[in-house]
Design a protein around this nucleic acid. Sequence first.
DNA 1: CAGGAGATGTAGCGTAAGCTACAAGTCTGT
DNA 2: ACAGACTTGTAGCTTACGCTACATCTCCTG
Lengths: 145, 145
Amino acid sequence: MPSRSPSRRQADNEHLRTRRDHASELAEDYVEAIAEIVERTGFCRVTDLAERFAVSHVSVNRAIARLKRDGFVEAHPYGPVHLTASGSRLALHSRDRHRIVLEFLRALGVSEKTAALDAEGLEHHVSSETLRKMKAFAVDRATEG
Amino acid sequence: MPSRSPSRRQADNEHLRTRRDHASELAEDYVEAIAEIVERTGFCRVTDLAERFAVSHVSVNRAIARLKRDGFVEAHPYGPVHLTASGSRLALHSRDRHRIVLEFLRALGVSEKTAALDAEGLEHHVSSETLRKMKAFAVDRATEG
DNA sequence: CAGGAGATGTAGCGTAAGCTACAAGTCTGT
DNA sequence: ACAGACTTGTAGCTTACGCTACATCTCCTG
Ligand SMILES: [Mn+2]
Ligand SMILES: [Mn+2]
Ligand SMILES: [Mn+2]
Ligand SMILES: [Mn+2]
């Protein structure tokens, strides 16, 4: 008789993939936010991030500690938060992807507010293959009618 | 001078929305899996779920405890897992949404394997508005060329 | 050059999810 | 009917990421 559950390579497990996406999500959102805040205001403080993410400053502190540990940011007590080279690269990558997903949703006809809300979660689960398709679609809709 | 950060309603915070999406994600995926396994094999055991999600049976046990607590499943020691009425409703809803997202990715031209991988994470961040657009797009591509 | 407001840090807590190791139940074939 | 294989349960650990309460620092303003 056939086995109840045919074996499949781990790499093909969708849930594993999703858990991995989530493991890198916080770092991606933080470096993206830090880059944006620095650009806009000159420097990024704990409070800015707390407001951005709608969490307490304590949660931000702990997140920053993890980002430091992972080499994405540099920060000293009572000082502003800076991106490392690695953090900057990740920020650029994340921002690009975020923009493409957002543009794509707009091109699909989703309202501005909904697009912004959905994109924040969606972006972390979009593979490079899907991202390419989204980009092509958005560009298509922009050039043609 | 203008405040460094213009105030915004909490409901508009994208990260808050994303965190809420994640809070309901496990329940959605579990009831969806339970419904599918019951349909296919007649009943759903702890082991089936452990394999499906690629986690240990311990993680499944704890997840089932939470699902019980939240009224989505009924289960007794050493017995199979059943969906409650509430759990069945959630399963149907989740399965519909999952299918639409998957169909949509296919219609976009994403490969079968990638579509399956991406859909598992994406589905939880798709608002009803975006889902409608995705459905329309998929249907469009199916009927026309 | 004090206050005091606001920002930051720390202690301690909670829940969700993951794990290994071990204990105990169930079920099947001989 | 029972041995062994498989399944399920439990104890105890870990990390991520939320929180409140309280302590401390910084920086502006009178
Ligand atoms: Mn995001
Ligand atoms: Mn997600
Ligand atoms: Mn699903
Ligand atoms: Mn899913």
